[in-house]
């Protein structure tokens, strides 16, 4: 199976690494540009998007990821970094998806919650969504598939090689989204290459 990177500048790195390894992927923690070589895909974990975005630029990881060859799965902060528009913010980002996100869209930590998401297009049965100061998507471009909603808000979407979730599947035992990323996105991209 392909080597999958987990961006390890800051955030919930070990949780993603654990899930990916349990699915049989070779996992590599990514901190420097050299770590990106030969990756079949990369996960951008939850964390603080302002911090990660800044370090992505400074340590020269952003240009390679922005080129769009490497499939990306972003959760929470990862989703924010993948968006080309962030409401009210000029913070650094990759901007690989034609979506607009709103940060801390459900409120502060006090309002953080767990709730089922109808993720049927991807996973069949509902997913358990863990939302922590989570963003959601307020607008999407024509190529973006909407895969899950909560309160009518878009919390899961895909554009080609890019998959973005507002929530944290890595904090649950549910590996279906990671499996979807590996099987439907990483493997297909490898076939096309």
């Amino acid at each position: 199976m392909a080597t999958i990177g987990v961006l390890a500048l800051q955030g919930a790195v070990r949780e993603h690494a654990r899930v990916l390894a349990s699915l049989g992927a070779e996992v590599r923690l990514v901190k420097r540009p050299g770590d990106l070589e030969g990756l079949g895909g990369i996960v951008l974990p939850g964390g603080e998007s302002t911090t990660i975005g800044m370090l992505l630029e400074e340590y020269e990881l952003a240009p390679v990821l922005r080129a769009g060859e490497i499939p990306i799965f972003g959760t929470c902060a990862g989703m924010i970094l993948m968006a080309d528009e962030i409401e009210g913010s000029d913070q650094p980002r990759l901007g690989v998806m034609r979506v607009t996100v709103r940060r801390n869209a459900f409120g502060r930590q006090r309002e953080s919650f767990e709730e089922a998401i109808d993720g049927a297009p991807v996973t069949g049965d509902p997913l358990r969504g863990v939302f922590i100061r989570a963003p959601y998507v307020t607008d999407v471009g024509p190529d973006v598939e909407i895969l899950g909603r909560v309160d009518g808000k878009i919390v899961l979407c895909r554009q080609g090689r890019f998959l973005a979730a507002s929530f944290h599947p890595e904090l649950t035992d549910d590996r279906r989204l990671h499996r979807y990323f590996l099987e439907e996105i990483v493997q297909r991209a490898a076939h096309l290459a």
């Binding site: 390890a8 500048l9 800051q10 955030g11 919930a12 790195v13 070990r14 949780e15 939850g46 964390g47 603080e48 929470c76 902060a77 930590q109 006090r110 309002e111 953080s112 919650f113 767990e114 709730e115 089922a116 509902p126 358990r128 863990v130 939302f131 922590i132 100061r133 944290h168 904090l171």
Partner: peptide, 20 residues
């Protein structure tokens, strides 16, 4: 599933996001 606020998972989860 109803919305559950303030679970231990979302409390400990924020700390996980601060790691590093």
């Amino acid at each position: 599933m109803e919305r559950e606020v303030g679970t231990f998972r979302v409390k400990a989860g924020l700390a996980e996001m601060l790691k590093g």
